Simulated assay, not measured.
Amino acid sequence: MGCLSLLVHLDHDPHCDARVALAARLAARLDAHVVGLATVGTLELDGPFAASRAVHDAATARDAAAIRAAHSIDRFQTLCRSQHVASFDAEAVEGDSAQALLHHAHTADLTVISQARHLRDERHFVERVLMHNARPTLVVPRDCPPEGSARRILIAWDDSAGCARAVADAMPWLQAADEVALRIWRRSGEPGEAAIRHRLEGVAAWLARRGVKTQARVAEATHAIGAEILAAAARLHSELVVMGTYGHSRWTERIVGGATRTALSHAKVPLLMSH
């Protein structure tokens, strides 16, 4: 296996350190390369208002953003060194944060962002990255434990294409994990239990052929699936949850599903998600 590459979103959010530190720990375990990406916005100077006070104010704001980006990069480099990451670099680019991150994600094996607070812009950023990222996304909770390094992993299997991609994308970390729990949830009395169990056994066998030993179980769901996933992660002391995400059209908007939204809003452990 060649060198993996992790892309980390850098900003002046107080929780940026948590996402960088986790990415650094994951990279150090697998000798991966880490790229930090900060954005400084754009400034248009064309048109009849180029000399106006508005442009001056915009330029001042952009300069301030550039200073914050430089600080974020310095902090990123310090954290990578403290975690003994052998290979890392960072850059500041112009443009919309989500768009820039998605563009750079095309050449990364994993994109690392933070869980959104209850702010519309932050939720939109996270969902936009999840829904349009061609590569897997790692969503780091805002109160992420400082010592986690994905040694205990929960796979929340739902037999969807997104989940299958997430498991394949997580393979390097699954192969390096100490414990991997494989779960699928069904409602009490729901038909097809034998078929579900047989399917899960097939997933476990596929993982075993890849060198991943799992503890596979069909679990009964008494609450919403998102809540069941998070409860299982807490019960198993999981340091990473692997799951798919999905969207559906509502007029012209793409939104994530209920289980995904619950996990994104309330997770206490990192989520590795693919679409």
Rank of each mutant, 00 (worst) to 15 (best):
A92W: 07
D159M: 08
F88A: 06
R123M: 03
V85M: 05
L102S: 03
S114D: 05
A108I: 09
L101Y: 09
Q115M: 01
I73V: 11
C80A: 13
L110N: 07
F88D: 03
F125K: 02
D121A: 14
P141D: 02
V139S: 07
S72H: 06
V85Q: 07
I67K: 12
G148Q: 14
A100W: 07
D74R: 15
L119H: 13
D89L: 11
L101Q: 06
S87V: 11
A98G: 13
Q83C: 14
S149L: 08
D74S: 14
E122I: 03
D74T: 14
A108Y: 03
C80I: 09
S87N: 14
R68G: 03
P146W: 11
C80Y: 10
C80D: 06
D96K: 12
H124C: 08
L102I: 07
R81S: 15
R123E: 09
D159R: 15
L119P: 00
G95I: 09
I153L: 02
T78W: 03
D89Y: 09
L130N: 04
R81H: 14
I73W: 02
R120W: 11
D121K: 09
R75M: 07
S114R: 08
R123G: 01
Q99T: 15
Q77I: 00
E94W: 02
W157C: 00
R120T: 15
A65K: 14
I155P: 00
I155R: 00
P141Q: 06
F88I: 06
R68Q: 11
L79D: 02
A69H: 08
A66W: 05
D89N: 15
